[in-house]
């Protein structure tokens, strides 16, 4: 009966994952390997293709002027001296804003997923906030892995493939921001998790009882323990020949924290460097006093 309960939990979290995350790993890998019947993604590999691809980039969340009128320079950056703000500089900032817009939407998706974890909404509300504040960027990075291969990443719900070399070529600090995620993802992808494994792993990350400032750790650890058992069983079933996969996966949680710390520092640096950079209030909330 205990194993049956753990399997039921696994199914429940997998269903919640499918409901809340629009681009699954199965779909992303199919796109990357050209196995969907659909049109191949639009490839962005230089400034020209970025400009063309801007029309496709899905910016449905941030209510910025430039998203409705992609040809116009964004109002938020109009105060930047024109001599300093060349065409590709504006493009880079607009692209950065699109990434923000997708991140805000991702926070909403992760929040809804967290709410579907049995027992999560019964935790102290302040602890729910803390778990999300510390968990969402880690989750976003994990969710990027299925979209990436060594050469680039899918963006805009799989409609666009952006090359790693192009991302690397962006001016500082943009150009440095994605490389650690590629390095992590290429290694993470060798574990060959499926979407069901991913769902459980995400729940384990959210239910981390060691986040700073938690008021009531015990119930969080209890919930996490159950999900961990479910994950362990799930991995034994889905990867019977992969020895120590459970342990290898848990080790990834340490790498993730370092990536998030560096990511937040890069954003803070960017905020200082780009005079009029607009950082969405929700992302500000999450990153303020994070690490």
């Amino acid at each position: 009966p205990e194993a049956a309960d753990l399997r039921a939990l696994s199914r429940h979290l997998y269903e919640a994952y499918l409901k809340n995350f629009p681009l699954t790993k199965a779909k992303a890998r199919a796109i990357l390997s050209g196995k969907t019947g659909d049109k191949a993604p639009f490839v962005i590999h230089d400034m020209k293709s970025l400009m063309e691809g801007e029309q496709i980039i899905n910016c449905r969340q941030i209510p910025c002027q430039e998203h409705q009128q992609p040809q116009q320079p964004p109002a938020a950056f109009a105060a930047v001296g024109h001599a300093d703000c060349n065409m590709s500089g504006e493009l880079e900032l607009r692209f950065f804003n699109s990434c923000q817009s997708r991140s805000v939407e991702a926070v909403r998706e992760v929040t809804e997923f967290a709410k579907s974890i049995p027992g999560f909404v019964n935790l102290d509300l302040n602890d729910q906030v803390t778990l999300l504040k510390y968990g969402v960027i880690e989750i976003m990075i994990i969710m990027m892995a299925p979209l990436m291969n060594k050469d680039g990443t899918l963006i805009s719900y799989g409609q666009i493939f952006m090359t790693r070399e192009f991302l690397k070529s962006l001016r500082k600090p943009f150009g440095e921001m994605m490389e650690p995620k590629f390095e992590f993802s290429v290694k993470f992808n060798t574990l060959e998790l499926d979407d069901n494994d991913m769902a459980l792993f995400l729940a384990v990350i959210i239910l981390s009882g060691d986040r700073p400032g938690l008021l009531n750790v015990k119930p969080i650890e209890c919930l996490q323990e159950t999900v961990l058992h479910s994950l362990e069983l799930q991995l034994k079933i889905s990867h019977p020949d992969s020895l120590q996969l459970f342990a290898k996966l848990l080790q990834k949680m340490t790498d993730l924290r370092q990536i998030v710390t560096n990511h937040v520092h890069s954003i803070q640096l960017l905020k200082k460097r780009e005079v009029d950079m607009f950082l969405h209030p929700l992302l500000q909330e999450i990153m303020k006093d994070l690490y």
């Binding site: 449905r60 969340q61 941030i62 209510p63 805000v104 939407e105 926070v107 909403r108 929040t111 809804e112 709410k115 909404v121 509300l125 302040n126 729910q128 906030v129 999300l132 504040k133 969405h280 209030p281 929700l282 909330e285 999450i286 303020k288």
Partner: peptide, 20 residues
């Protein structure tokens, strides 16, 4: 609570961040 107003709101209802 004030520091994480939007996260609180997202947790308590389905408000889209764009409306906040």
């Amino acid at each position: 609570k004030e520091k994480h107003k939007i996260l609180h709101q997202l947790l308590q209802n389905n408000t889209s961040p764009v409306d906040l």
